[in-house]
Design a protein around this nucleic acid. Structure first.
Lengths: 351, 351
DNA sequence: CCTCCACATGTTAGCGCTAACAAGTCAGGG
DNA sequence: CCCTGACTTGTTAGCGCTAACATGTGGAGG
């Protein structure tokens, strides 16, 4: 009964196929498929027969064939702009890991000009990605969000400031994290503070400042001992803001920068001005990107679980794709835990 | 003759297929397949036509179908250790781009302990990757190389020091690049030099120093005006080496660090010591990773086309996999061009 | 006794791609 | 002018699986 004669095979015979199982169990391949997929319409007796055949042949379904034949979603667009150094690499590692596990494919697209985001996105969507992952800062670009909404695309925003009713999101609690980090500075005895804000376009900038301010207020630090400077999340902008902070006559003893790059810039400038870090000035960052551990002194910062969030983003976008197809349910809003990372850039306030 | 009528389709029309591309290019699907697989039997003209159609439709081959239909390799293992900040992200972007173009799938695996490299690699190979990409520093780990050779696996080493008879490689000419960069310093009038070496395990460390030394010798700089310190490619090691260089009584006016991280550390220390960069001391790096442009002053360095090399690595590993199957030919050794990037960290020698 | 219908299983036709072979095309040699 | 063979392109069949439809059961109801 060997229907699989040499002639019909192209590859050196490998593992058993669904037909081998079907033949052995004396049923059709379709019935085997139903057993595999746990469909309820198979008689208990038949199922047992098939399951025995499966066990005997040590059969495992071929995932490639399943995804081909079925309607499993598999292309995910990842639109990135220019996240800070190190963020992207960690993000990609996480995302790729998960995509290979789930058998989905990731299509990366750089989108340098925010104005072009709409066009890039439209092209991606038109040419067949099933869903989108939007890491920061695109997850908050109005152009992008509007386009996604208009297209009715399945999408996940990673690390936006807020939940969204249109889109699944994965975030950390920026305000709480900033609050904790500020408390750490307060516990070290600091009384005069500087804060370097993030890009005004991104909600997280405000949230981080809110957490900072709330902690200071709770500790009774007066407004005049707090100086806030505008930054834009870049090293360069951090440098400029730090110049204004560190050259002020009542120099703060602790500077909270809204991300690591700006904190690194502040540390660099402090050294240039002959200040010891953390002896003369304590500096903290945010995100725990690779620069944080790689400069001297290593930055005290808040760890954002980027890889885990990327992994979750892949799962979530697959879920979103299914949800969009079925037209049911609400987009999920996930919150990931953050961690305070104490390193060497913040120490006791100078006396 | 639109053969793809609605009736024949099962999915809501999604991404372009090989037939869409074929139709648009006016060829058969098979020809498109040949183009995708970089087979040599396609006329240049036809290839261009097909490639244009691919670009227009933003087509990417379906990996599931490929793995089902043929023996097309499609899983590529990317074993990474801990390359310097920013390197990985650029590498991944390039590699992913090409992998999506060729429909191959990249499986990333971190391999922190060099001793565990062997085990990690064995596991990867067993679970069905068809070939391996080894970025630095793993591309020179003896353990890894021995394991790869023993397994007879198809592999590509990216940025190793030397060509190899066992393995395809993609490199830049480190010695020539270091030579050019040193000539740049000489042209600026520098006479006393410092050099921070890279990790002694990596051949490129020696090559970069060789290029440096050759240029100095050619310019007639005496040995006693050149000070060499050992570094390990990390920020921290650069800092320690820089301390020895910049605190010396005959402080060099120009420091060549074997990578950007160490150059950044040197710049940081210089500032801490109250030295102006480049007024008092010029500093150059190597690699042009993201840190180079993001510190102040921006580093004069050598640009290594990381993304292009990663893209090439994907193509080359696919080629290697085929070569291994056919048992023919020699592994190719590719050399990519480097570029001198002049920024602000090197200036005229102080008088 | 026949209809109707729920239930269990089989059949058909692809999913998107490529191996193997077939067939055209064009050069030069007989 | 046809033949040969190198080169390029097309055709056919099927990879392993499953959606959609078709078919065969058997028992309840008329």
């Amino acid at each position: 009964m060997n229907e699989r004669t040499e002639r019909t095979r192209r590859r050196s015979s490998q593992s058993a196929t669904i037909r081998d199982v079907a033949a052995r169990a004396g049923v059709s391949p379709m019935t085997v498929s139903r057993v595999i997929n746990r469909e309820s319409t198979v008689k208990e007796e038949t199922r047992a027969l098939v399951e025995q055949a499966i066990a005997e042949l040590n059969y495992a379904p071929n995932p490639a064939a399943r995804s081909l034949a079925g309607s499993a979603p598999f292309r995910i667009g990842l639109l990135y702009d220019n996240p800070s150094t190190g963020y992207l690499s960690e993000f990609l590692v996480g995302a790729l890991d998960e995509s290979s596990r789930t058998g989905s494919q990731i299509v990366i697209e750089k989108c340098a000009e925010p104005e072009l985001a709409g066009a890039t996105l439209a092209r991606l969507l038109k040419t067949g990605v099933d869903g989108l992952i939007l890491p920061p800062p695109l997850c908050e670009s109005q152009t992008v969000l509007a386009e996604v909404k208009a297209a009715g695309a399945a999408a996940v925003a990673v690390a936006p400031g807020m939940a969204s009713s249109d889109m699944a999101t994965i975030r950390i609690d920026n305000e709480a994290a900033a609050f904790e980090l500020t408390q750490h500075l307060l516990a070290l005895g600091h009384k005069r503070f500087g804060f370097i804000k993030g890009h005004p376009n991104q909600t997280v900038s405000q949230q981080r400042m809110d957490g900072f301010m709330t902690a200071l207020k709770a500790a009774g630090i007066p407004q005049e001992d707090v100086r806030v400077e505008q930054g834009y999340f870049t090293y360069r902008s951090g440098l400029e803001a730090a110049e204004r902070l560190l050259n002020a006559k009542d120099r703060p003893t602790a500077v909270f920068a809204a991300n690591d790059d700006m904190a690194a810039a502040t540390a660099g400038l402090a050294h240039r001005l002959g200040l010891d870090v953390p002896g003369d000035v304590s500096i903290v960052g945010f995100d725990d990107t690779s620069i944080a551990a790689n400069i001297w002194p290593a930055l005290t910062t808040v760890h954002q679980p980027i890889a885990a969030m990327a992994r979750a983003a892949v799962d979530l976008v697959l879920e979103e794709i299914r949800r969009h197809r079925d037209g049911t349910g609400e987009p999920r809003q996930l919150m990931h835990p953050h961690t305070l990372i104490v390193r060497d850039s913040a120490g006791p306030a100078p006396t």
